[in-house]
């Protein structure tokens, strides 16, 4: 597998996704190798089974955008050929057509997903908090922290639907992320793969099917530790949304204060 720009696009524990993919391969006796691809390094996506790119701040996205553009056509061809990809947060945004930043500056993306992301300005909230999604991999949990709002093209499938949290937050739908063939883009970190073993295994399975044929299936595994972390993240997302949804008015102010005090170390 290729890990794109690991030294630059790594702001929210993106390394955890690589750790999870390797760990879950190892459980099944599958050898795996991770190649770190930084700006300027030689990279032919056709030679890889899986590609992962993480998130970065605006400054970091600008830093790698030019290099990523040069790799756009070969990445696009490989995705058309069924290459599984996980693109998280900033990496996800650059897999759309463009990212229009806070200052109006446009960073062109590689257009694997038919979408664009716009920053709504300093006055707008960042989308920060726990998220639960409904996806074809089941419930997916994670944490989002992004300023940009993502607008999907009319034919562009999302990765999932927001159950708790904000997601693409474009005001038009409750979509989160994007999906094209075996390429998945999402705002979720956490890291997302360790506590969503169905998604981690899903990516590995897609990679193995692409290489060895459709009848390949991953051996199931005891995921008690993963499921416990998944469950605690779901519970967190629910309770936090509960705190936000306390309503308005003087009584609600008291409820909010109580919730806040509860959150402050229980003092």
């Amino acid at each position: 597998m290729a890990h794109l720009y690991p030294d630059v696009m790594n702001i929210y524990g993106d390394r955890g996704n690589i750790i999870a993919l390797r760990h879950r391969c190892e459980l099944r006796g599958i050898d795996s190798e991770v190649v770190e691809v930084n700006a300027g390094d030689p990279f032919d996506p056709a030679e890889f089974d899986l590609v992962v790119i993480g998130g970065g701040q605006d400054r970091e996205q600008r830093r790698i955008a030019d290099d990523l553009l040069t790799r756009g056509p070969s990445l696009k061809a490989a995705v058309e050929d069924g290459l599984p990809v996980l693109a998280v947060c900033g990496g996800f945004q650059l897999f759309g057509h463009r990212y229009v930043g806070l200052d109006g500056e446009t960073i062109p993306g590689i257009g694997i997903f038919d979408m664009e992301t716009r920053h709504p300005g300093v006055e707008a909230d960042r989308c920060i908090g726990d998220v639960v999604l409904a996806t074809e991999f089941g419930a997916i949990v994670g944490f989002e922290n992004h300023g940009g709002r993502t607008y999907l093209g009319s034919g562009q499938e999302p990765f999932g639907t927001v159950v708790h949290g904000r997601g693409n937050n474009n005001g038009a739908d409750s979509s989160e992320g994007a999906r094209y063939r075996n390429a998945i883009g999402t705002y979720l970190h956490g890291s997302v793969l360790p506590k969503n073993p169905a998604l981690a295994d899903g990516l590995i399975e897609m990679a193995l099917k692409r290489r060895y044929g459709d009848d390949f299936e991953l051996a199931p595994h005891d995921d008690a530790a993963e499921q416990a972390a998944h469950a605690s993240a779901v519970a967190r997302a629910k309770s936090r949304e509960g705190d936000r949804g306390l309503g308005r008015g003087p009584l609600a102010a008291g409820r909010r204060l109580r919730a806040k005090l509860r959150d402050l170390a229980g003092r």
Binding site: G13, G16, I128, G129, H189, G190, S191, A265
Partner: peptide, 15 residues
């Protein structure tokens, strides 16, 4: 813990 004073996002543990 993942309360406000701890940071609500536990992703950092993977770094």
């Amino acid at each position: 813990n993942d309360r406000f004073a701890d940071g609500q996002d536990v992703s950092w543990t993977w770094d």
